[in-house]
Design a protein around this nucleic acid. Structure first.
Length: 98
DNA sequence: AAGATGACGCCCG
DNA sequence: CCGGGCGCCATCT
């Protein structure tokens, strides 16, 4: 599954967004799909995937969990959001092997 | 089959 | 910065 593969590429200490992952996976309109895959939990680094702008889209305890885990990895927060400027991971040129 | 829902994203005011 | 509305997509009622 492309989505899964893409998510696994995000290195520790870095993050990405639902939309970015979707695009990298070749699903320009699949942000919500990415979210579903994560929730289903496959043993993916779910904490490294945020909403556009670096905002945590979870609620309640889960949101706290995520924030804690990210900070533990060294991800810097700017208020409610993650400092994407510095922590966003850029995927390689959609290397669609062809 | 139609409507509602949700870890989304983007545009407007 | 914040809220509201609309488009997207798969799943569940």
């Amino acid at each position: 599954m492309r989505i899964e593969a893409v998510i696994r590429r995000i290195p520790r200490g870095k993050v990405s967004t639902y939309g970015a992952v979707a695009r990298a996976a070749g699903l320009p309109r699949g942000a919500r799909l990415v979210a579903r895959v994560l929730q289903r939990g496959y043993g993916l680094p779910w904490q490294r995937v945020l909403g556009a702008g670096g905002e945590i889209k979870l609620r309640g305890d889960s949101a706290i969990e995520q924030r804690l885990r990210l900070e533990a990895e060294g991800v810097r927060f700017r208020g409610r959001k993650v400092d994407m400027k510095q922590c966003e991971f850029r995927f390689g040129p959609s290397v669609r092997k062809r």
